[in-house]
Design a protein around this nucleic acid. Structure first.
Lengths: 340, 340
DNA sequence: CTGAAAGCGCTTACAG
DNA sequence: CTGAAAGCGCTTACAG
């Protein structure tokens, strides 16, 4: 074999006794190539172990089949699951995904976006937690199609969950179970998606006269923060201790569970609902009830939207917005004896 | 601004009133460019918003500054942390990492490797859980430098942890705490890294006369599997129920904790040690003692090795092997009242 | 159905 | 210190 990667299309052509253009047609316009010729080309490719050079192809075709995906947070297991689903969808359309994360570092984010431009990715998916106006502007300035997730600013086409409904589903479930002293545990600073979930909770409680709402603010949305929040809740005066909690996501819910399940009965004394239905939710110390968001569908829609942006056949114009509906998965953290 | 990405190096040259070669030198051999000329070029780049086209550069230079990273398992939080660390190191050397995972699908793996070859990545990092002979052969056949992690076959340079020491550290800790009925919970099928950890446990117990070892085999190394194992252990006859458990990794340890902490006292009745010290370990229902593996160091060494492979200055020849040492982090799952 | 030629956007010796 | 020219490995009209 040797350094087979030095085999060029030209070499294949020479071996098959045809011109390079014909080999290229063999790949891209097979119908134009005679079966006998195709046979010889196939043999030459096999003999030589030819693999096309995508950089050269990209240069000429002006498309790289590369998609940039900038996540602002990958620590979250939900992100990991999304990446996996999105990659699968992208691969099906012949794209390779460049997955990167800025982890909240603004400087790094600029660098990563510039890398996308240098690589001439065909499009970019932004899954931010904060504002993205500037980033979107830079990419648009370079003519790079962008799709946002969970962002309704209208700066670019977006796919999002119905966050308000997410909050409503969680709160309704608790209220239906007879819970009245509700707590919402999450961080709100500048994150609209969270504010909307909270609004959903408020929507429900507004219709329940004897209910109350305690909002616990967190620094981050991690298991560790959930633990901290649990300490804070446990320290409240008895009349304020909640009997139902909506956690902003599953890691926070698990952190709450890990501390509270030592001290009180879950769900008898306090019922807990998470959001996202990550894999760990079902396996928590008490299996966690959670509002699931249809991640595969989300990934598929994101790619569909980006793909149509790339090909300029954006249906509905620049402002397309896809909203997906969540659904409640009931487990033992709210209803004892639920089948596993 | 407009479609700024259509700005080419030629355009910059025209605007600055120099030849393309000089602009190229401005980037790659700045010392050859007069300061006054450089000034004009800088201005032109700014005015035009020029960003180089890496595909064109790659074609000419025959290097893409792309690294392929094929992980065979990303569900594990440890993998996610590794990816983050490796990306950071790679970026520092000007590389962009293509992170993909085969999730055990052999067919998909071939496709992904072919993608790496088509993209003409400068090198590949393989973090497998099983055998990799064939994959290594394919890549070498195409002249692509490869580095392996956790693989001592010698098929390619590798960086690994001292797995046997990992097992020893965990077992010694339990034995020192007076535990004698030890269980090892993990799957062994074809995964040498696990076999070596188990061997380390055996090493220690061989020197403790009144000790016993129960090995519990799992399907996967997930939280769910840990839960299943816990059920199985709880069903044993009293004399066989372990008082010390080594879990093959932290997710399994957490699964064990989540079930066992309901039924017995942890660590009084049973002490549990995990491996990897993932972020969740410290936040578990009972904070999990774990054998930490120095992930940042691991990522740095992996990249260093790959980088020297790429540049042909491999010190110590083809068979370079870097072995890193783990260390024990003690928490409440083995020692009550441990500071958090 | 096939080939010759130009060109994608850059870099690299080589002259000067 | 700067420029002209060739070439990286492909694809794409255009002839034939």
């Amino acid at each position: 074999m040797g350094r087979v990667s030095f085999v060029r299309l030209t070499d294949v052509a020479a071996r098959a006794g045809v011109s390079p253009g014909t080999v290229s047609n063999f790949f891209h316009n097979p119908s134009r190539v005679a079966e006998l010729t195709a046979e010889r080309i196939r043999a030459a490719i096999d003999d030589l172990g030819y693999v096309p050079n995508d950089a050269a192809r990209a240069l000429r075709r002006r498309e790289t089949k590369l998609i940039g995906h900038l996540a602002f947070e990958v620590a979250n297991p939900y992100s990991a699951e999304f990446v996996r689903a999105f990659d699968r969808e992208a691969r099906a359309l012949g794209y390779t995904v460049l997955n990167v994360s800025s982890e909240g570092d603004h400087e790094l984010q600029r660098t990563l976006i510039e890398t996308f431009v240098r690589q001439r990715v065909d499009g970019v998916l932004l899954t931010p937690t904060g504002g993205v106006g500037e980033t979107v502007d830079v990419l648009k300035g370079h003519g790079v199609p962008v799709v946002l997730t969970d962002n309704l600013d209208g700066a670019a086409p977006a796919v999002a969950y119905d966050d308000r409904l997410t909050g409503r589903l969680a709160a309704e479930h608790l209220v239906n179970l007879g819970r009245r002293k509700i707590a919402f545990v999450g961080n709100r600073d500048g994150v609209e998606i969270i504010a909307r979930r909270l609004q959903g909770v408020r929507d429900v409680l507004a219709g329940v006269p004897d209910s109350s709402l305690e909002v616990v603010d967190l620094e981050t949305r991690s298991v560790a923060s959930g633990r901290v929040a649990a300490q804070r809740l446990a320290a409240l005066t008895p009349d304020r201790i909640p009997d139902g909690i909506v956690a902003v996501n599953d890691p926070v819910g698990i952190g709450l569970l890990n501390v509270l399940s030592h001290r009180v009965r879950v769900p008898e004394d306090v019922a807990i609902v998470g959001i996202d239905d990550i894999e760990f939710a079902a396996e928590a110390v008490v299996p966690l009830t959670s509002v699931a968001r249809p991640i595969d569908d989300f990934a598929a829609q994101s790619l569909r939207l980006l793909h149509s942006q790339i090909h300029g056949d954006a249906t509905g114009g620049e402002r397309s917005l896809v909203v997906l509906e969540p659904r409640l998965i009931v487990r033992e953290s709210t209803v004892p004896g639920t089948a596993t």
